[in-house]
């Protein structure tokens, strides 16, 4: 019995590592795509798919861990201190919003991802406004909100399609 438990923990740990690697690859792919909409720092948010799926598969603790580690590692590899700060602000706010929606079972994955995408952009923009000490950049807010909804919708569709296929495999 004891043997089974420890091997389950090991499988769990290895799966988290694989998910983290996947999130990092998504970060890298994103940094290659010049996805530019006239607003600086806008991204597709592919890594959010991993965070959403993990939130459903393994729960908040593991999802948060992978999300933060992904931001730190990707920041050191492809970004700088500032991009880490902006990503952290967006990542943590969107994680909290998504956690709330998932825990209260308010809505399904697609809507969770939409709310996540929107709050990610919101968090980044608010931190940028505070750091640059200029509130005019809040003019980008509506554009970023719409952008976050659209990218969140796409990511949500992808994430729920993946989750439906992956979830049966992780059942112990």
């Amino acid at each position: 019995m004891k043997h089974t438990t420890s091997s389950n923990t090991q499988i769990h740990l290895v799966s988290l590592g694989v998910f983290l690697a996947l999130a990092l690859i998504f970060s890298y792919v994103e940094s290659l795509i010049p996805f530019y909409f006239g607003v600086p720092g806008m991204k597709l948010g592919l890594t959010n798919a991993v965070v959403v799926i993990l939130l459903y598969l393994y729960g908040p603790r593991d999802s948060f861990l992978v999300s933060v580690l992904r931001i730190l590692l990707a920041g050191f590899m492809f970004g700088n201190a500032f991009s880490i700060l902006y990503s952290l602000a967006g990542g943590i706010l969107s994680f909290l919003v998504m956690l709330l929606l998932v825990q209260t079972k308010f809505c399904k994955m697609i809507a969770v991802s939409v709310a996540g995408g929107l709050s990610h952009n919101l968090g980044q923009l608010l931190l940028a406004a505070v750091l640059v000490k200029n509130y005019n950049i809040l003019f980008y807010l509506p554009v970023l909100m719409v952008a976050g909804i659209i990218t969140g919708l796409l990511i949500g569709i992808i994430a729920s399609a993946i989750h439906a296929r992956v979830a049966p495999l992780t059942k112990d």
Partner: peptide
Amino acid sequence: YISKRDLFLILFLLVLS
């Protein structure tokens, strides 16, 4: 994948923005 409430939430956020 998507319920009525999800659609309402997405539409609400879209209208808001």
